Amino acid sequence: MTSQDDDGEKRRRLVVTLMFMAIVIHRRLSKKNNHNLLSKEELLKRQLERERLLHKLIKGGKCRELICVSEQAFRKLCTILRRDGGLRPTQRMSVEEHVARFQHIVGNDMRNTMVSFIYGRAKSTTSRCFHRVLHAVVALESYYIQQPKGDVVPKEIQEKKRFYPYFKNCVGAIDGTHVRVKVPNRDAPRYRGRKGYPTINVLAACSFDLKFTYVLTGWEGTASDSRIVKDALKRDDKLLFPRGRYCLVDAGLPHTIELMTPYRGVRYHFVTTRLRPGSSKT
């Protein structure tokens, strides 16, 4: 027998071995899947339980307590996500259940495992549900987060004598806030700033009617507010200011034509204390 015949025999044995292993693995997976399959009666029972749960949640007066929004706001949110965000129901899950499960997670800081247990769903299903709603929420950015044009004076300033005409060119306020996050241990030092735990420093601008006009996330907790503002003014989707307009900021940000900071050493917030009878003010 030649060496070529030996090589051919080895290849045939290898192919037969791989085919045998594939058959064994396929049979084991088939048995596992068949074992996990539920009957139609069990699926129908779980579906009815989920419908009763949603009915009690929306119409039982516990909506605000459980998912942090009122019943009216919940219905309106479902309508907006369906109409503008592109959220669609699946074969076995309605838009309302999508949004309710999403609110359980973000409103109460619940884990996927707990939400899956409450609704009788698999953890992978809960994860896909969460990301569907998240993508729909992100799609609403162009509808609800719009930078000011500066063509009109906000009524919150125009209707109050102590603000008008002094702040007639002001279009809003800017500040930063730290949001707690979980990151790998090797990256934790970059995110652990003055809070003592890992955070991201989020820069947000809002108008005087308390609507967000710009949000920049992703910076580590150790990054200063002034550094983040400089990045917001240079990036492609940058923070815009109408000509001749400005925003109010705190002393941690730079003072420029477009950013107005308070005077150093001037006290703007007064704390009133209630004196006891017979005591004197020091």
Rank of each mutant, 00 (worst) to 15 (best):
C63W: 00
V106F: 04
R27Q: 11
V183R: 08
E159V: 10
I200Y: 05
A204K: 02
H104W: 13
I25L: 10
I157T: 03
V271Q: 13
A136W: 06
C68K: 15
M93V: 15
G221N: 04
R180H: 11
F102G: 01
I105D: 02
D151N: 14
T90Q: 10
P165V: 10
G265D: 06
L14Y: 13
L203K: 02
Y164L: 03
E51I: 11
M19C: 08
L259K: 01
N169G: 04
Q47K: 15
M110K: 12
F130V: 06
M1T: 12
M21I: 08
R180N: 06
V183P: 11
M93L: 14
T177K: 08
Y144K: 02
Y164K: 03
N169I: 03
G265N: 09
V249S: 08
V153F: 09
A232D: 01
N33I: 13
D84M: 12
I23S: 09
Y191G: 00
V133D: 03
E156G: 03
I174F: 13
D250K: 06
R276P: 12
L66K: 09
K238A: 15
V133P: 06
D84H: 13
D187C: 09
K168P: 00
R11H: 05
K281L: 13
L216A: 01
S226K: 14
H104Y: 15
G85D: 01
K149P: 00
N108H: 14
Q158V: 00
Q72G: 06
V99E: 00
I257M: 06
S142K: 12
Y166K: 09
I67Y: 03
Y143K: 14
R194N: 12
K149F: 05
H55N: 13
T17F: 15
L248E: 04
L43M: 11
T177P: 15
T79I: 06
L18P: 00
L54N: 09
A223D: 02
R276V: 11
N201D: 07
D236W: 12
Y164W: 13
L240N: 08
I105W: 03
A173K: 03
A173T: 04
E49F: 15
V133L: 10
L216S: 04
Y166C: 05
V229E: 01
T199I: 09
K31T: 01
V266Q: 13
R64A: 10
T199V: 10
G150E: 01
K155C: 06
E159I: 05
G86V: 03
T113A: 07
A173E: 01
K59M: 01
L240P: 00
L233T: 14
E65L: 11
R121E: 07
F163G: 05
S39Y: 10
H98C: 01
D84L: 15
A122F: 11
P148Y: 11
V183Q: 06
S116N: 07
P89H: 10
V24R: 07
K230E: 09
R243Q: 14
T125D: 02
I200N: 08
G193F: 11
H26D: 07
M110P: 05
T79R: 10
T222A: 07
D236G: 04
T282F: 12
R194G: 14
S3D: 07
A136Y: 08
D209H: 14
S94A: 07
V181A: 02
R92A: 08
A122E: 13
K32C: 06
F163K: 08
E49T: 14
L81G: 05
K161N: 08
K45Y: 14
V16R: 15
R82V: 00
